[in-house]
Design a binder for these strands. Structure first.
Lengths: 132, 132
DNA sequence: TATTGTTATACTCTATAACTATA
DNA sequence: TATAGTTATAGAGTATAACAATA
């Protein structure tokens, strides 16, 4: 029981470190990476981003400020509710997230090169069992 | 192949969020938690801590400063080499890490309550296959 | 000269509290 | 009144560069 939780935590540290370091090589933080990842198929409000990333709305303001200053995302006002700000990804943001994710996939493939096929399938089931 | 990497990344975010939030309830960051975890069975040098946590030595200086100011760790000079600073955990630090880890184990048990026994064993093998 | 650690500096990330604009 | 978002503020975490002490 505890061995499983220990392994889960250690695996998390290993993967998170890879994410952090690879993103940093593209001048991205893990949070910026997750933000751009979210925007691949959505144009959410600030509040929706806060919910998805489990952040305070004020944190999202700063996050989007920095991404916008770099030309990676753009703000617009919702036509339905003038209080709501919608965030979309720019072509530059799309290019960066594609490149970053490709690099991360490559690194994680390397990290897990020795994992057996059956164990890969099991991990996918573990992820599905987790409510997140 | 990509499904596995995606699941690995998503699982990492879920677990890391639990670690971050649970540690925060004990006024600890994930990094402070990892520092205290390291010191449970070691009295490493600043450089050794930097290596284990994959941080710059200057980052470790600040990390240990803050933990020391809270009375969680103590610095001492190595008897073998006056350049080297050794870091040890205090009784208060030991108590805090025990309580924090117990709480985290509980939360991760909850998070993964629906994971099948065979899949738990598989995840332990995945962790062992990863060089970290 | 090389290594260990610290300091100065600058930036990102995060939350709380107070605020503005809109509903 | 309630909600969406921002701003001011404070603190943690991180790296780079320059430095002091020791080997």
């Amino acid at each position: 029981m505890t061995a499983f939780v220990d392994a889960l935590a250690e695996l998390t540290f290993a993967v998170h470190d890879v994410l952090t370091r690879t993103a940093a090589e593209h001048d991205l933080s893990v949070t910026q990476l997750r933000l751009l990842g979210l925007l691949r198929d959505r144009t959410p409000s600030m509040a929706a981003i806060a919910t998805h990333l489990h952040l305070d709305r004020s944190s999202v303001s700063g996050l989007v400020d920095r991404a916008e200053a770099r030309g990676l995302v753009a703000r617009s006002t919702s036509p339905d509710d003038a209080r709501v700000t919608l965030v979309s990804v720019t072509p530059a943001g799309t290019a960066l997230i594609r490149q970053g994710l490709a690099e991360i996939t490559h690194r994680l493939d390397d990290l897990t090169a020795n994992v057996a096929p059956d164990d890969r399938a099991a991990l996918i089931r573990v992820r599905q069992s987790v409510t997140y």
